[in-house]
Design a protein around this nucleic acid. Structure first.
Lengths: 144, 144
DNA sequence: CCTCCGCTGAAAACCACTTTCAAATGAGTT
DNA sequence: AACTCATTTGAAAGTGGTTTTCAGCGGAGG
């Protein structure tokens, strides 16, 4: 029955195993990150966090996100090629990005995943991860 | 029989229509770009170009690539999230990128394209372009 | 061959990170 | 509770690739 998958547990275990400390800042930042349900820019998360503890700076948020990446709790993405976005690790999904309003729709299609694997196998390529993004115009923006 | 699709023609038309000039530098840079068959970094193209005319600088190559992008003759890509790569516009293809050696394999699969369209139609999303990249380990790197 | 305005190259500015460093703080030890 | 000391923190400085600025150059129509 053990083996909790609770993100906070995962983080705490990672910290302990690496001789790292449990600090108030990390707790706040991770808490806010996990609470959110969208793709977050560093600055956005920083703003959230500053509402709770204004003294926390960009760098600490940045480092905490790197930490979350390292223990597998977050993924970093680069869409429009501006700033990085971070999302909670979890079920896999790909993205449809509206080039007008920037909104992001997530999608998932097992048939596509399967075909990917087929294509990779053909040249003996071992897939580690992938990125599939569709750019275009969302239904809202099509009606001006 | 009119309507040539020759890239040079496309470029020249674009220049004329925008009151832009035909210069030796642009000619050399575009010539070298079109001659190449791989994904080029700005610096790589710069090196090619300098063999012909050493006085040409980074900035001019950069601006010429932006120009090519604008007239639809080149696409800009950001893979590993380091430097931009530019590739000739043409047949569409996606990429498999080796995370060890950085080599890039192009692939294409109509079935995947079709499924993409299906997924987009489902939420009334109008596709303009897409990016599909598979990261992993190429066969060469799997044998150390 | 003149003149105008786009073009060029070097250098400076930008921007989003990423690293550095001295001071502050967890958390074992006494 | 006080001591110790490696880890953290925040501000500031550094990076690296790209983008803009600007003074002089040069294409091309008159």
């Amino acid at each position: 029955m053990a083996h909790t998958q609770d993100p906070m547990e995962v983080l705490n275990r990672y910290l302990d195993e690496h001789g790292m400390k449990h600090t108030r800042q990390r707790e706040i930042i991770v808490g806010e990150f996990l609470k959110s349900n969208k793709h977050l820019q560093i600055e956005e998360l920083l703003n959230q966090v500053k509402k709770i503890e204004p003294s926390i700076g960009y760098v600490t948020v940045y480092r905490t996100l790197m930490l979350l990446k390292e223990c597998g709790l977050a993924h970093q993405r680069h869409f429009g090629d501006g700033k990085s976005l971070f999302e909670k690790a979890g079920d896999h999904h790909d993205h449809m990005i509206c080039i007008k309003c920037g909104s992001i729709n997530e999608f998932e299609d097992d048939r596509i995943e399967k075909l990917q694997e087929q294509v990779a196998k053909r040249i003996n390529f071992k897939i580690v991860s992938h990125r599939h993004e569709i750019y275009g115009c969302c239904s809202r923006c099509q009606n001006e």
